[in-house]
Simulated scan of single mutants.
Amino acid sequence: MEVTLKFGDKVTVADVRKLHDMEDAAFDKEWFERTDARTEDMYYMFRDLAKNDADLQAIKNNHLRYDITVIPAGMLGSEFTKTLGHYHPQVPGTDVSYPEIYQVLEGSATYLLQKVEHDNEDNVLDVAVITAGKGDLVLVPPGYGHVTINASDKTLEMANWVCRDFSSVYEPIKRLSGASYFLLEDGFAKNPLYRNVPPIRYLKPLPSNYLGLSSGENMYDLINEIEKLRFLTSPQDFMGFFAGVL
């Protein structure tokens, strides 16, 4: 059965991540071998949202995309439910990868961000974990891959703004069976397939005024000041903006 989301005057059908899609990035391989729930839904991605046709045209004209992801609470065996995780490619003609910005709409999220050595994804240079609640902003700066974990007992709903001109890179995460750490019921565990994994740095979300938003304001409203999001499409021109984020 299709899962849909009404956003403004439009209804969008979800892209569904199934349990079997997560096996390559999961900690508890033995649980996956035993489970008979491989075809169950894990989480839902509503992509390219806009409240009306005028907003959608403005979003497209600025090479952006606004998405909402819904992650029900649950476990992957001994590991908390999470997204598959991915990296972003570099902006053509530069050595700077595309960033992304998230906002928690409902529930709470644990964002794991990792920076790896170029062409040696098993050598991790930095790992940061940010726990965010409703209204909080989390910026994934250039150079970092990321995974979102729902370590709560409530459904997580989060939004993101991102450049629409690229495809996410999943292969390194799959090849190494996940990110550099897994979040289990008793805490974070290192992924042994990585050659080098530094300790986690625990950070706070961005202040709401980082993008000029009022406290509790939905970042979709940046559609009215869309030039503020140009750092997502031309990050090479905003390196000072990213300084100190992590």
Rank of each mutant, 00 (worst) to 15 (best):
K82W: 00
T83C: 11
L84H: 14
L84G: 07
H86V: 01
Y87R: 12
H88Y: 04
H88A: 04
H88T: 05
P89V: 03
P89N: 08
Q90G: 12
Q90R: 11
Q90W: 09
Q90P: 05
Q90Y: 11
V91I: 14
P92Q: 02
P92E: 10
G93D: 01
D95S: 15
V96S: 08
V96E: 09
S97N: 06
Y98N: 03
Y98W: 02
P99L: 09
P99K: 08
P99Q: 10
E100V: 12
E100P: 14
Y102E: 07
V104I: 13
V104G: 12
V104K: 09
V104H: 04
L105I: 14
E106N: 10
G107E: 04
G107D: 03
S108C: 04
S108I: 00
T110N: 13
Y111E: 13
Y111W: 14
L112R: 09
L112Q: 15
L112N: 13
L113C: 07
Q114C: 12
Q114P: 14
V116W: 07
H118N: 15
H118E: 15
H118G: 12
H118F: 12
H118R: 14
N120S: 08
N120R: 08
N123I: 10
V124Y: 07
L125V: 12
V129P: 03
I130E: 07
I130G: 05
I130A: 08
I130R: 02
T131C: 15
A132D: 03
K134E: 15
D136N: 09
D136G: 02
L137P: 13
L137V: 10
V138T: 13
L139A: 14
L139G: 14
L139Q: 10
V140D: 11
V140C: 13
P141L: 02
P141Q: 01
P142D: 03
Y144S: 10
Y144W: 11
Y144T: 09
G145P: 09
G145R: 04
G145T: 06
G145D: 08
H146N: 12
T148Y: 11
I149W: 05
N150P: 06
N150Y: 02
N150E: 07
A151W: 05
A151Q: 13
S152D: 04
T155L: 06
E157H: 02
E157C: 11
M158P: 07
M158L: 15
A159W: 01
A159R: 00
A159Y: 03
A159S: 04
A159I: 02
W161E: 06
W161D: 04
V162Y: 03
C163G: 15
D165Y: 00
F166H: 11
F166T: 08
S168I: 00
S168P: 00
S168Y: 00
V169T: 10
V169H: 01
Y170T: 11
E171G: 10
E171C: 02
P172D: 10
P172A: 14
P172F: 08
R175M: 02
R175P: 03
R175G: 05
R175W: 01
R175Y: 07
L176K: 05
G178M: 00
S180A: 15
Y181E: 04
Y181Q: 01
Y181V: 00
L184G: 15
L184I: 11
